[in-house]
Design a protein around this nucleic acid. Structure first.
Lengths: 225, 225
DNA sequence: GTTATTTTTTAGCTTTGTCTAAAATATTTT
DNA sequence: AAAATATTTTAGACAAAGCTAAAAAATAAC
């Protein structure tokens, strides 16, 4: 077990986090994807890839796709943990809105004091997911990955529970609150319209209503039971 | 009223804070003092002085002592405000110790989101002082400066209340807690020993006890009434 | 009122992280 | 399989913030 706790710069942490997220979707990651994600240039990414490789956080060979080493993944999970704990704090304790907490957490996540994060976690009551429904890794870097599916892919007449939202903009927040949908809401798709992919949704004790395909694509659910 | 909200680097903020603190003691500040305070070299300080002058945060002319401009002072007070609010949070909400919160707040203070700080302030109940008894500037940058005196300078048999502590080390914390002294404790000096400057202290309903001169120099009080 | 000492600044170099432009390598197309 | 296209890397520059060593200015000492 490597408790080396080497200090990483903000930039290094941002790259780790980006690569981690991208590789969760696609297994392997390439230079361009990272550059796009971090709004920087491929040349800058290459430089950083070499640094991360030198620090044994990344498995990388020139001109090939890459992924984090075990050590790098663990470090990235630590950053994700800090980010999501702070988001939880900002929403649940300070009463801030979904749309504004991400950018702030983006800064707070780089304050990496072990004791602080443990105390914060305890103070928050060891939450399992952040306000958007994304799982919070525990102190050992273990993260529950519940199998989730986009509402756009949910078969009709199948009970499901909203577990997370993809788009975290204020527009999305506003709309969800208007529709009375939040993390944990149980619903099912009653029918789907060929024309534009809209879905008709049923929530218990509520009248039927329709949401757009874009909306459905950004709502993730788990099957009930 | 300048609401320009130019973004400052961590380094710039650290310099502002240092100069602010130093000038509170001596009115004007010189290059060496800042270098010593920030554990850096005078040449580096000179570079930064020029940057701060260019940003109109500092009144500075080569080879002369300097001080913050009105704008610079206001900015510095904002940083102090953030630092002390976070310290309050860490101690009062997360239950951390005096000795460990300063370094953490040193990082958190650089997360400068207006809304965040207002929400945090409200959440904490608009505290007036941090855990060490130092006043917290309000949102307008106003800071109460109560006239305080070192316990070493307090005349004997004069009622006084502990309002802040100079040294914030864990040793100091441990000792204060052992002696049952905290911010707000009322006491008086019964006598002072010529030999080593020790002072004999009386707290109501407690037996007399002696503290060292070093201790007394790091305890600040306000006169009662 | 020179000389000596201290303080401050300048000049030039280093590191981190970014960029642009050009070269090298991969991949696709035909 | 050769040409065209896309991706990635290298090379060289730049800005921020630091450093060392040397020069300049201010202060102190005689």
């Amino acid at each position: 077990m490597t408790l080396s706790t080497i200090t990483l710069s903000k930039a290094e942490e941002d790259y780790l986090k980006s690569i981690f997220r991208l590789q969760q979707e696609t297994g392997q990651v390439n230079t361009n994807a990272v550059a796009q994600d971090l709004k920087t240039k491929p040349a800058s990414v290459t430089d950083m890839l070499k640094k991360l490789k030198a620090k044994k956080l990344l498995n990388y060979e020139p001109y090939q796709e890459f992924k984090l080493s075990a050590e790098g993944k663990k470090t990235a999970l630590g950053i994700v943990r800090r980010h999501r704990l702070w988001e939880y704090f900002l929403v649940e304790k300070l009463g801030m809105g979904w749309d504004e907490v991400h950018d702030i957490a983006e800064h707070l996540e780089h304050v990496s004091n072990q004791r602080l994060i443990e105390k914060l976690d305890a103070y928050l009551g060891y939450p399992e997911t952040d306000p958007h429904g994304d799982p919070i890794p525990d102190a050992q870097g273990r993260m529950k990955v519940q199998p989730r599916i986009s509402l756009d892919d949910l078969p009709p007449n199948t009970g499901a529970t909203v577990c997370s939202v993809g788009n975290q903009s204020s527009g999305m927040l506003e709309m969800l609150s208007h529709l009375n949908i939040r993390i944990g809401t149980r619903l099912e798709v009653k029918r789907r319209f060929e024309f534009d992919g809209s879905a008709e949704i049923k929530i218990r004790n509520k009248p039927l209503f329709v949401i757009s395909r874009v909306m459905a694509q950004n709502l993730f659910v788990t099957y009930d039971q």
